[in-house]
Write a protein that binds this DNA or RNA. Sequence first.
DNA 1: GTTTTCATGTAACCCGTTACATGATTCA
DNA 2: TGAATCATGTAACGGGTTACATGAAAAC
Lengths: 203, 203
Amino acid sequence: MAGKKGAGVLELAVLGLLHEAPMHGYELRKRLNTLLGMFRAFSYGSLYPCLKQLLAKGLIMEDRPEEGTAALALQSRRSKIVYKLTAEGKERLQELLTEAGPAAWEDEGFGVRFAFFSHTRADVRLRILEGRRSRLEERMERLRAALARTRERVDQYTLELQNHGLESVEREVRWLNELIGRERAEQELASRTSDDKPREMDR
Amino acid sequence: MAGKKGAGVLELAVLGLLHEAPMHGYELRKRLNTLLGMFRAFSYGSLYPCLKQLLAKGLIMEDRPEEGTAALALQSRRSKIVYKLTAEGKERLQELLTEAGPAAWEDEGFGVRFAFFSHTRADVRLRILEGRRSRLEERMERLRAALARTRERVDQYTLELQNHGLESVEREVRWLNELIGRERAEQELASRTSDDKPREMDR
DNA sequence: GTTTTCATGTAACCCGTTACATGATTCA
DNA sequence: TGAATCATGTAACGGGTTACATGAAAAC
């Protein structure tokens, strides 16, 4: 609970990907951008400094392929640097994936969290999905209100834009509804299996 | 063509809104956020500096309500400051709305341009819509490829995310197709009306 | 053997936010 | 008269990009 701040999408994404498999920066960036391609794209200019920083924090470690065992090659020979999570890194990742607050359901962070949902506790998943949904429902309301006002002022394009925006949000809400339904069903199934045990909401 | 750079969404949005009607900062921000609510939300911390900067560039001017005609009130009395476009401001706005390059169809800038499409030349509108579409089609291809690869690795949630992303993009492409169709129809109609006149693409 | 792609990194910069400070106006 | 909201502003900071520099490995 000490001065831990910042976090950021990138940090989480890197930790998450490295948890799946050790990787070097270049590859990491590619995986990053295919994973989150529909939201954003990171550049090397942000990735490498981030790695450096994670290294300094002891959350990841380098795995430089040390070439010919002995003292042959001097320390030059720049080569691929494979990164992997340390124990603290895994802990940190788990911690990030467990927090179910605004950071997890705002536009910024939701995508990444969702991408790593299979490493997230079931109850946290549900809370994040619900948080996201109510966030979008708010937006929907505001959008509907805006639309009602715009309809009178008849700027055809603004109307078209807001309408398309509204439909997008509505669509995402429907998607979330389905996901939440599935999660609930699974949870119920799970609790019915472990049956009479006195509760114990995970963790 | 001299050292004009930066621009930015905010500048365009402010010019666009002020073109519709003079306004003070606070109101401007609200209009801004209902207009572009589904993309982003600006804070005062960026709006006021932007206004200051536009003022310095001579694109907008203040309209301080000068109270009781004469030298009564000393120069204190801070009050609402209504901004409006200058001649150069209108020119600049027109210039911004006429450029049909990447800036106009990337995620960042597309929304704002579209919102002000009714002040944009018909041919420019079409080019921007087409630019946007091909941008999204690229993304679609990459997304489809990513999906194909993900399907084998069976992370259920990643798959779900990418799938939803793909569908969103496909939906936007269909939307654009429709808009482009309408624009084309209108253009044809217009050219058939003015018929044998040697061209003169609007404005 | 040269071009392309892989691979790592840095420095300058930009756009925007957060948090704060201040004051006027409206309304209970 | 005190609280809420309207209204304007600033300083510190942050997270990211662009453009650049460098070099190894693969492809042609």
